[in-house]
């Protein structure tokens, strides 16, 4: 190294001769662990870049994604089981189930169907008319798969089967109630 002296004359770090506005610098070597860390990250990077062993991109992010989806699909039944119409009807007169259903309704459905089912963006759910059928199975099915093109979202993926049945029960229980600001009926009348 250029221009260095050893302040204490022997032991201790060497102080370089130069000085800038009173600031001096030692000629200490770079810490060994630091150099090793640096070298380690460089080596890791090379290994990763060339996909050596388990280190690296592997097959890449899209292949990983497809594998993830395939695994999940294998674990799920092809057709989700649907509750029977009778069970839904029974639930519609079960106070507790309807109450649970109302809670789901208020958080997810009221924004479009109105807080009392009278209809808003979506149709009136309290009248006798149905666009997609008023039988318990049809109602369940509409809620499950939605009518995306018309602005009704599908709910099967976000609600649990229990919540699905409960909210269906609640919708069925609305029949014959009189909402404050009802939308005119749409679709065909349905008589149970």
């Amino acid at each position: 190294m250029a221009d260095q002296t050893n302040e204490s004359g022997g032991e201790g770090p060497r102080l370089l001769e130069h000085e800038y506005d009173g600031i001096r610098e030692y000629d200490n070597p770079m810490p060994g662990w630091w150099l090793l860390t640096f070298a380690g990250t460089v080596i890791f990077s090379v290994i990763y870049l060339f996909n050596v062993g388990p280190v690296g991109n592997g097959k890449g992010r899209i292949a990983d994604y497809e594998a993830e989806m395939a695994t999940a699909a294998a674990l799920q039944p092809a057709t989700p089981s649907r509750p029977a119409a009778a069970a839904l009807l029974a639930m519609a007169s079960d106070e507790e189930a309807v109450e649970e259903g109302e809670e789901v309704y208020q958080s997810y459905c009221a924004s479009c169907h109105g807080p009392d089912g009278g209809g808003l963006i979506g149709p009136n759910l309290a009248d006798a008319n149905w666009i997609h059928g008023g039988s318990p199975d049809s109602v369940y099915n509409t809620i499950a798969v939605g009518v995306l093109a018309k602005g009704m979202p599908p709910w099967e993926k976000s609600l649990t089967p229990k919540q699905m049945s409960e909210v269906t029960a609640y919708v069925l229980s609305l029949r014959g109630t009189s909402p404050t600001n009802p939308k005119p009926p749409e679709g065909e009348p349905y008589t149970p």
Partner: peptide, 11 residues
């Protein structure tokens, strides 16, 4: 006091 290491600064 002096800076710890001039060489480290460079690298």
């Amino acid at each position: 006091g002096p800076v710890f290491s001039y060489k480290l600064s460079i690298l």
